[in-house]
Design a protein around this nucleic acid. Sequence first.
RNA 1: UGUCCGAUGGUGUAAUGGUAACACAGCUGGUUUUGGUCCAGCCGUUCAAGGUUCGAAUCCUUGUCGGACAACCA
Length: 570
Amino acid sequence: MSDNKNSSDTNNEQTKSLNFIEQFIEEDLSQGKNDNRIHTRFPPEPNGYLHIGHAKAICLDFGIAEKYNGKCNLRFDDTNPSKEEIEYINSIKEDIHWLGFDWEDREYYTSDYFQKLYDFAVDLINKGLAYVDDQSAEIISEQKGTPTEAGVESPYRNRSVEENLELLKRMNNGEFDEGARVLRAKVDMASSNMHMRDPIIYRIMKVPHHRTGNKWNIYPMYDFAHGQSDYFEGITHSLCTLEFEVHRPLYDWFIDQLKDSDYRPRQIEFNRLNLTYTVMSKRKLLQLVEQNYVEGWDDPRMPTLSGLRRRGYTALSIRNFIDKIGYTKYEAMNDITLLEHSVREDLNKKANRVMAVLDPLKVIITNYPEGEEEELETVNNPEDPEAGSRTLPFSREIFIERKDFMEDPPRKFFRMGPGREVRLKSAYIIKCEDYKKDHETGEIIEVYCTYDPETKSGSGVSRKVKGTLHWVSAKHAFNAEVRLYDRLFNDETPDGHKDKDFIEFLNPDSLTILKNCKLEPSLKSAVKGEKFQFTRLGYFCVDNKYSKPGAPVFNRTVALRDTWSKIKKK
RNA sequence: UGUCCGAUGGUGUAAUGGUAACACAGCUGGUUUUGGUCCAGCCGUUCAAGGUUCGAAUCCUUGUCGGACAACCA
């Protein structure tokens, strides 16, 4: 099964209304801006793994380029060598490809532009638009003012061009300690926009960079690098999240000093992805990893792309989900059930149905000849005729799900109980004649049934019975580990409480490991990443970390919709 | 007491001056050898008040509520 197969879902754009970004772009196109060229970029910082919120940006950046016959660059925003690692770069590239996008040969790094940015800084100094400030971070911060009060100008603001040039050179030579001096743009300390109050554009960091080594002792701030990098790359539309809206005037100010034509990237901000029952900030995800609340960035409970992939989510289901939630300027909270719906929708069409009993209860069919066995045919996927069929071994002793038997069942329980008849899926109708119980513990040990040989599946003889159960032949089943995942948090907005830390809302039952599951023999050869529907239970995927050849470990991606559990609650 | 940005069912989006639509969730019921899938049905006078207009979710004004902004992070 391929994750990246495009279905018609992604191709019905002609009937779909444009989002506000596409509208802006089509306006620009109709006005002939940038010679009708469309060029976007996805600019991650390589300081963590990509999560589903990044996927929203990726789908937009690459999607817009695809839709309008343009290009999308991948650019690593690597301006802070103290936080960034090559491991992250590799995972980011893998995740983008997995989602089904490609940047061809346009893999760029902000560090590629360090020299150009430095030259631009020198240029600003020469124009009297930048200065070296000798004050400490604390003092600079105090002088910045507040959103309602203007800041005050630094005493170093009007140094001579020569002195500024000299000091910048010495900063970069490593002659000063980290934090001793910074380079600031000379904009407006009284601006109502805090970002315009003489922002810091270079700081001293005596840290080797993963690409430039020890060449630099000063590194540009993000705000001094990002907009210009877009400009250097000829980006026409810089799409980013809402919080950068207030940065836009500063980016424009820098480009004003830099540009030599009418061209300038147009920044458009959209809402970030928020999901119920999870957290999305990289800082918080990093905390979950570092403090071992999860097993790593790719823990199947994480909203990271590697986590979702390991959980069994398909790339298409994530893309469809993102398509459904849309892009607006309203800070929305998206219901996780829509993501779950998207993966069920995709897997329903693609995943073969198989027999797996997670909590086994033995059933002995007393009138089935001892030692006899037969192969019963079963359809692989009723939603996909192409999927064909296979056979299932059947014999006198089988396992059913413990929950499918009740000693004293209520009226609406359509499963097995004393004297009741149920169908075994793709096999026979059986009737419960008796059962053995451990009176100490109350545990049901075995159930004794008779089968009706006339009711074999496909024989045409079928009485109406209310329930159909999944099962595996005891003799042919093999034991496997199955991991049931639930939501990582039991609160809708774990990081939305002012007085409580999000860690307090961790769901203690987010992972249940079952070691004694009975699986049909065909599953023995399942390969890493392969996806199935365990009949009546949910969608499961072969774990790519713990599985061994011949000994697959299964992750539950998502349970099937469960009407019975709702009836039970009433 | 600042600047910027928002507000349409429980949730997310659409309607771009002309009958408020779609999806998810929830609730009914039907089909079913998965209590799955599928099918049918139910669930909103668009934050408020004024204005413009034959006509306003849409345009204007004022207000209310929410978010962002004061890292040598990105």
